[in-house]
């Protein structure tokens, strides 16, 4: 039972300047195990992104403490913590630093002072992982949004962090690009067993997590497995969140007086339930 806690956050508070006392994070305490895939959901302004940015010191802590892999976040540890955490942000264009794909992937390695021969190897390897090997010399203006996010991901992979934070990384992509990026992350997670923290509005992305944390008003509103959380149905909608497609179908069928089970159904279980119901009729 004694799993290693890779992220431990205690009593985090954060207030943006000029926010008139509104706390973006209000006594937030969360811990995340190594190798876990956690999705953080919540409506706009619930403090998701603030939380992500406070993990690697992009925002100064105002009160509370953050421990990453047994290292407390402080002024002198912030760079070693940033080495452990890779972040992919929302806008694919605004996080592309390099002039070409390979330059961008190498950027993080250059920052760490990795010698050039090793850098070339790691860049090749990372770009291959995300399936962008044919695009090494391409400029960002000639790539699609999904491809740019895959390059951003490759930049993170090359740095070999222990934790991957996706700060709404798929929210500006088309459905195909989103699928590509998520498939790449799933594969990566399997191969390296890194800890993934995905902050998202995309309910299908959340459904594939090990655990979902709902944030509301800078606090943890609830947490649990996707099955637990999505069983809330209407309560999620009241929080301004979406529910997965089978849940929507269930609600619609309930309205038609068709009796449905109350627990959460994945697409497969929904199909199973429907055909057993059909054969009983």
């Amino acid at each position: 039972m004694d799993e290693q806690k890779i992220i431990q956050v205690e009593q985090l508070k954060y207030e943006y300047p000029q926010s008139d006392g509104h706390l973006a994070l209000n006594n937030l305490s969360v811990s995340i195990n190594a190798g876990e895939w956690v999705a953080i959901i919540g409506h706009n302004g619930s403090g998701k992104s603030t939380f992500a940015k406070s993990l690697n010191g992009l925002l100064d802590l105002q009160s509370g403490s953050v421990m990453i892999d047994d290292l407390p976040l402080a002024l002198d540890t912030v760079w070693s913590i940033r080495k452990k955490i890779g972040m992919v942000f929302q806008n694919p264009d605004n996080q592309f630093v390099g002039a070409t794909v390979e330059d961008d992937v190498a950027f993080g390695l250059e920052n760490q002072g990795v010698p050039r021969p090793e850098m070339i190897e790691r860049v090749q390897e990372a770009v291959k992982r995300v399936g962008m090997l044919d695009y090494l010399k391409r400029e960002p203006s000639r790539l699609s949004g999904g491809q740019k996010q895959r390059v951003a991901l490759a930049g993170i992979i090359a740095q070999q962090p222990e934790i991957l934070i996706l700060d709404e990384a798929t929210s500006m992509l088309d459905p195909k690009g989103r699928e590509e990026v998520l498939a790449t992350i799933h594969k990566l997670k399997q191969e390296t067993n890194m800890t993934v923290l995905s902050i998202t509005h995309d309910i299908d992305e959340a459904a594939s997590a090990d655990r979902i944390i709902i944030l509301d008003n800078g606090q943890v509103y609830d947490q649990g497995t996707p099955a637990d959380i999505f069983a809330y149905g209407q309560r999620l909608l009241d929080l301004g969140l979406d529910v997965p497609y089978p849940e929507k179908l269930k609600a619609a069928l309930n309205k038609l007086q068709i009796e449905m089970p109350t627990d959460y159904l994945t697409t497969e279980r929904m199909v199973d339930y429907l055909w057993t119901l059909h054969s009983k009729m």
Binding site: L58, F89, F107, L109, E110, N111, G113, V123
Partner: peptide, 25 residues
């Protein structure tokens, strides 16, 4: 906004200035 996003992304990837960097190209 772009500059802000870019600076955040650069910092998150460990950019600390020109000192101690190696070069890819």
């Amino acid at each position: 906004n772009r500059a802000d996003d870019l600076a955040t992304a650069m910092e998150a990837r460990g950019y600390q200035g020109g000192e101690g960097r190696s070069k890819y190209r």
